[in-house]
Simulated assay, not measured.
Amino acid sequence: MTADPAISGPARQPGGVRGLWLVAWLAVLGVLCALSVAIGTRAVGLEDIAAALRGQVDSIGQAAVAARIPRTVLAALAGAALGVAGTVMQGVTRNPLADPGILGVNLGASLAVAVGVAWFGIASAQAYIWVAVLGAGATAVFVYAIGSLGRGGPTPLKLALAGMATSVAFVSLVTAVMLSRGDIAGGLHAWQIGGVGGATFARMAHVLPFLTAGFALCLISARKLNLLALGDDLAAGLGERVAVARGLASLGAILLCGATTAVCGPIAFVGLMVPHLGRLLVGVDHRWLLPFSALGGACLLIVSDIAGRLIARPSELDVGIVTAFVGAPFFIWIVRRARVRDL
């Protein structure tokens, strides 16, 4: 990789070191996937796992493994999408508090789906995804507009406050929608928590085109995000079209958030925690940070899913609850660690 003018000084790390970190996290992801398939409310042996991988479901253990495989794949895809989306949002807004959950983007997608189901009777998987993506995009624009009002423009703290206020309002609106439709309230409430249970490869097939497009747009925007980190004036001076760069990267993040929310429900804090860990390990160059965020997000969501199965045995906790339990203290730590005037 050639040197990027946006990455200089101690923030740059040797490519070999960063490569080793990515390889290490790829190995961790492989181990976690194996554990996710093996661990659950029912203990299974290696014979059941091997048989299920061959497509056999002759026993309860094999059926349990067969159900855990798509669940693990969905957790990895959703975690990777949320991790990358959070990194892009932090880069676009230059906001260390940015996260699809904190900025209200996931809940905007959730509200759009709830309204679509309750009032317009949407039922197809494709309709769910399109409505969720549109809701996520509209919310992102709304929060950015609100956070830009007043002196100083869209500061990180104002964006975070606008996003949290929007999230609270949207939670109330989703509740109101569910109360008006008791016949669908149970399904919407379970989905609103955020989880990967009941995953199937058929459900994932519908979101793969949206996730692929989102990942592609975000990765293409890696160098643009490096330039945006220098400030709009300097980025423009280096030949970057700032508005186009922001729009392209934001579109990628919105596609990832909307598609993930459509299939899993709103899951918060993954996009907040993973980018901060990535910067500690591989630096601030988005060409390295985005792949690390994908791996880190996948690992985090799989760990959360495994923890949810173990904590509440013989029942389960959805991953949305586990990530909120871990992410809320992390959010408070980030705010306390940074001086308020610097936010």
Rank of each mutant, 00 (worst) to 15 (best):
D48I: 05
D48S: 12
D48H: 07
I49Y: 00
A50P: 00
L53M: 15
L53W: 10
G55L: 11
Q56G: 05
Q56D: 13
V57L: 13
D58W: 07
S59I: 09
I60E: 15
I60S: 14
G61H: 07
Q62H: 09
Q62T: 09
A63C: 13
A63Y: 06
A66P: 03
A66K: 07
A67W: 06
A67Y: 07
A67R: 08
A67N: 09
I69T: 12
I69G: 02
I69L: 15
P70S: 13
P70R: 11
P70H: 11
R71W: 07
T72E: 04
V73W: 05
A75W: 00
A76D: 03
A76G: 10
A76Y: 01
G79Y: 03
A80S: 13
A81T: 08
G83L: 07
V84E: 00
V84M: 10
V84Y: 01
A85H: 04
A85Y: 03
A85Q: 03
G86D: 05
G86P: 03
G86C: 10
V88S: 02
M89T: 03
M89G: 02
M89A: 07
G91R: 02
G91H: 05
G91D: 07
G91I: 08
V92R: 00
R94V: 12
P96V: 08
L97A: 08
L97H: 07
D99H: 09
D99S: 10
P100H: 09
G101A: 09
L103D: 01
G104D: 05
G104L: 06
N106E: 10
N106V: 01
G108M: 05
A109N: 05
S110K: 01
L111C: 05
L111T: 04
V113E: 00
A114V: 08
V115E: 02
V115Q: 06
G116Y: 02
V117I: 14
V117H: 01
A118C: 15
A118M: 08
F120R: 15
F120M: 13
G121V: 09
G121P: 08
G121S: 14
I122V: 14
A123Y: 11
S124K: 13
A127H: 08
A127E: 12
Y128C: 02
I129D: 00
W130S: 06
V131N: 01
A132N: 02
A132Q: 01
V133F: 05
V133P: 00
L134A: 15
G135F: 05
A136Q: 04
A136S: 14
A138I: 10
T139F: 08
T139I: 06
A140M: 13
F142H: 08
F142Y: 14
F142I: 12
V143C: 11
V143I: 12
Y144F: 14
Y144N: 07
A145T: 14
G147A: 14
L149Q: 15
G150W: 15
R151F: 14
G152P: 08
G153H: 12
T155V: 11
P156Q: 10
P156A: 13
L157Y: 10
L157V: 14
K158S: 09
K158I: 09
L159P: 00
L159C: 08
A160Y: 03
A160E: 03
L161S: 09
M164G: 08
